[in-house]
Amino acid sequence: LTVQLGNLEWHFDNPEQALKMAEELAKRYQLKVEIDNGTLKFK
């Protein structure tokens, strides 16, 4: 699973870790998370 923020990307083997990080980033920057083809992206 990949977490993508702008041109930064983090790759996780563990989806739970990816979701946890995505939630933290979304909270911190007040963004919405969307999943696009196995990639978590922020809007």
Results as ranks from 00 to 15, higher is better:
Leu1Ile: 12
Leu1Asn: 04
Leu1Cys: 14
Leu1Met: 13
Leu1Glu: 02
Leu1Gly: 03
Leu1Tyr: 13
Leu1His: 06
Leu1Phe: 13
Thr2Ser: 07
Thr2Ala: 06
Thr2Pro: 03
Thr2Lys: 11
Thr2Gly: 03
Thr2Leu: 08
Thr2His: 06
Thr2Met: 08
Thr2Cys: 14
Thr2Gln: 04
Val3Asn: 02
Val3Trp: 03
Val3Tyr: 03
Val3Thr: 02
Val3Asp: 02
Val3Phe: 06
Val3Glu: 02
Val3His: 02
Val3Ile: 11
Val3Leu: 11
Val3Pro: 02
Gln4Trp: 07
Gln4Ala: 07
Gln4Ile: 14
Gln4Pro: 03
Gln4Cys: 11
Gln4Tyr: 08
Gln4Leu: 11
Gln4His: 07
Gln4Gly: 03
Leu5Glu: 01
Leu5His: 04
Leu5Lys: 02
Leu5Met: 07
Leu5Trp: 15
Leu5Thr: 03
Leu5Tyr: 10
Leu5Val: 06
Leu5Asn: 02
Leu5Cys: 12
Gly6Val: 04
Gly6Ala: 06
Gly6Pro: 03
Gly6Ser: 04
Gly6Leu: 06
Gly6Tyr: 07
Gly6Met: 06
Gly6Cys: 15
Asn7Leu: 12
Asn7Met: 12
Asn7Cys: 14
Asn7Asp: 10
Asn7Ser: 12
Asn7Ala: 12
Asn7Thr: 12
Leu8Val: 09
Leu8Lys: 14
Leu8Ser: 08
Leu8His: 12
Leu8Ile: 11
Leu8Glu: 06
Leu8Thr: 08
Leu8Asp: 05
Leu8Asn: 09
Leu8Met: 13
Leu8Tyr: 14
Leu8Gly: 04
Glu9Phe: 14
Glu9Ser: 14
Glu9Arg: 15
Glu9Cys: 15
Glu9Asn: 10
Glu9Pro: 03
Glu9Leu: 14
Glu9Met: 14
Glu9Ala: 13
Trp10Asp: 00
Trp10Ile: 08
Trp10Pro: 00
Trp10Met: 06
Trp10Asn: 01
Trp10Phe: 07
Trp10Gln: 02
Trp10Lys: 02
Trp10Glu: 00
His11Ser: 06
His11Asn: 05
His11Pro: 03
His11Ile: 08
His11Ala: 05
His11Tyr: 13
His11Met: 05
His11Glu: 03
His11Cys: 10
His11Phe: 11
His11Val: 07
His11Arg: 09
Phe12Arg: 01
Phe12Ala: 02
Phe12Cys: 15
Phe12Met: 03
Phe12Asp: 00
Phe12Asn: 00
Phe12Ile: 03
Phe12Thr: 02
Phe12Gly: 01
Phe12Pro: 01
Asp13Glu: 12
Asp13Gln: 10
Asp13Leu: 09
Asp13Ser: 12
Asp13Cys: 10
Asp13Phe: 08
Asp13Lys: 12
Asp13Pro: 10
Asp13Ala: 11
Asn14Trp: 06
Asn14Pro: 04
Asn14Thr: 12
Asn14Arg: 09
Asn14Ala: 07
Asn14Asp: 14
Asn14His: 08
Pro15His: 10
Pro15Ala: 12
Pro15Gly: 06
Pro15Gln: 09
Pro15Thr: 10
Pro15Asn: 06
Pro15Phe: 14
Pro15Trp: 15
Pro15Arg: 12
Pro15Ser: 09
Glu16Trp: 13
Glu16Phe: 13
Glu16Asp: 11
Glu16Thr: 11
Glu16Ser: 10
Glu16Asn: 10
Glu16Lys: 12
Glu16Arg: 12
Glu16His: 11
Glu16Pro: 04
Glu16Gln: 12
Gln17Val: 11
Gln17Asn: 09
Gln17Arg: 10
Gln17Trp: 10
Gln17Lys: 11
Gln17Pro: 05
Gln17Leu: 13
Gln17Ser: 10
Gln17Cys: 11
Gln17Phe: 10
Ala18His: 01
Ala18Ile: 05
Ala18Leu: 06
Ala18Trp: 06
Ala18Asp: 00
Ala18Phe: 06
Ala18Ser: 02
Ala18Asn: 00
Ala18Arg: 01
Ala18Lys: 00
Ala18Val: 05
Ala18Gly: 07
Leu19Tyr: 14
Leu19Cys: 07
Leu19Thr: 05
Leu19Arg: 09
Leu19Met: 13
Leu19Phe: 14
Leu19Pro: 00
Leu19Glu: 04
Leu19Gln: 06
Leu19Asn: 03
Leu19Gly: 02
Lys20Met: 09
Lys20Arg: 13
Lys20Pro: 01
Lys20Ala: 13
Lys20Val: 08
Lys20Gly: 05
Lys20Thr: 08
Lys20Glu: 08
Lys20Gln: 10
Lys20His: 08
Lys20Ile: 09
Lys20Leu: 10
Met21Glu: 03
Met21Arg: 04
Met21Thr: 04
Met21Pro: 00
Met21Asp: 02
Met21Trp: 15
Met21Tyr: 15
Met21Cys: 15
Met21Phe: 15
Met21Asn: 02
Ala22Met: 06
Ala22Gln: 01
Ala22Cys: 04
Ala22Val: 05
Ala22Phe: 06
Ala22Trp: 05
Ala22Thr: 03
Ala22Arg: 02
Glu23Val: 12
Glu23Leu: 14
Glu23Asn: 13
Glu23Ile: 13
Glu23Gly: 08
Glu23His: 12
Glu23Thr: 12
Glu23Ala: 12
Glu23Met: 14
Glu23Arg: 14
Glu23Pro: 01
Glu24Cys: 15
Glu24Trp: 15
Glu24Phe: 15
Glu24Gly: 11
Glu24Val: 14
Glu24Asn: 12
Glu24Lys: 14
Glu24Thr: 13
Glu24Gln: 14
Glu24His: 13
Glu24Ile: 15
Leu25Gln: 00
Leu25Trp: 09
Leu25Tyr: 09
Leu25Phe: 11
Leu25Ile: 14
Leu25Pro: 00
Leu25Ser: 00
Leu25Glu: 00
Leu25Met: 06
Leu25Lys: 00
Ala26Ser: 07
Ala26Pro: 00
Ala26Trp: 09
Ala26Asn: 03
Ala26Cys: 10
Ala26Glu: 04
Ala26Val: 05
Ala26Gly: 05
Ala26Thr: 04
Ala26Lys: 04
Ala26Phe: 07
Ala26Gln: 04
Ala26Leu: 06
Lys27Arg: 14
Lys27Val: 07
Lys27His: 09
Lys27Pro: 00
Lys27Phe: 10
Lys27Ile: 09
Lys27Trp: 09
Lys27Tyr: 08
Arg28His: 06
Arg28Met: 09
Arg28Tyr: 09
Arg28Glu: 05
Arg28Pro: 00
Arg28Asp: 02
Tyr29Arg: 02
Tyr29Ala: 02
Tyr29Ile: 03
Tyr29Gln: 01
Tyr29Thr: 02
Tyr29Gly: 01
Tyr29Cys: 12
Tyr29Trp: 09
Tyr29His: 04
Gln30Thr: 05
Gln30Arg: 11
Gln30Asn: 15
Gln30Ala: 10
Gln30Gly: 15
Gln30Leu: 08
Gln30Tyr: 10
Gln30Ser: 10
Leu31Phe: 06
Leu31Asn: 00
Leu31Thr: 02
Leu31Arg: 00
Leu31Trp: 08
Leu31Gly: 02
Leu31Met: 08
Leu31Ala: 02
Leu31Gln: 01
Lys32Glu: 10
Lys32Cys: 12
Lys32Tyr: 10
Lys32His: 09
Lys32Asp: 06
Lys32Gln: 12
Lys32Leu: 13
Lys32Ile: 15
Lys32Arg: 11
Lys32Trp: 09
Lys32Asn: 07
Val33Gly: 02
Val33Cys: 08
Val33His: 03
Val33Arg: 00
Val33Asp: 00
Val33Gln: 02
Val33Ile: 15
Val33Pro: 03
Glu34Trp: 15
Glu34Arg: 06
Glu34Gly: 03
Glu34Tyr: 15
Glu34Ile: 15
Glu34Lys: 05
Ile35Cys: 11
Ile35Pro: 03
Ile35Lys: 07
Ile35Asn: 10
Ile35Arg: 10
Ile35Asp: 04
Ile35Tyr: 13
Ile35Leu: 13
Ile35Met: 12
Asp36Gln: 11
Asp36Glu: 13
Asp36Arg: 10
Asp36Tyr: 11
Asn37Trp: 04
Asn37Gln: 09
Asn37Phe: 04
Asn37Gly: 14
Asn37Glu: 08
Asn37Arg: 07
Asn37Asp: 08
Asn37Pro: 02
Gly38Arg: 08
Gly38Asn: 10
Gly38His: 08
Gly38Ile: 04
Gly38Thr: 06
Gly38Glu: 05
Gly38Ala: 06
Gly38Asp: 06
Thr39Gln: 07
Thr39Ala: 05
Thr39Asp: 03
Thr39Pro: 01
Thr39Glu: 04
Thr39His: 07
Thr39Phe: 13
Thr39Ser: 05
Thr39Asn: 05
Leu40Asp: 00
Leu40Trp: 05
Leu40Lys: 00
Leu40Arg: 01
Leu40Thr: 00
Leu40Ala: 03
Leu40Val: 14
Leu40Pro: 02
Leu40Ile: 15
Lys41Phe: 08
Lys41Gln: 05
Lys41Arg: 14
Lys41Met: 07
Lys41Tyr: 10
Lys41Pro: 01
Lys41Leu: 07
Lys41Val: 11
Lys41Ala: 04
Lys41Ser: 08
Phe42Gln: 01
Phe42Asn: 01
Phe42Tyr: 03
Phe42Asp: 00
Phe42Met: 10
Phe42Ser: 01
Phe42Lys: 01
Phe42Gly: 01
Phe42Cys: 10
Phe42Leu: 15
Phe42Ala: 02
Lys43His: 09
Lys43Val: 14
Lys43Arg: 14
Lys43Trp: 12
Lys43Ile: 14
Lys43Ser: 12
Lys43Ala: 10
Lys43Gly: 05
Lys43Tyr: 15
Lys43Pro: 03
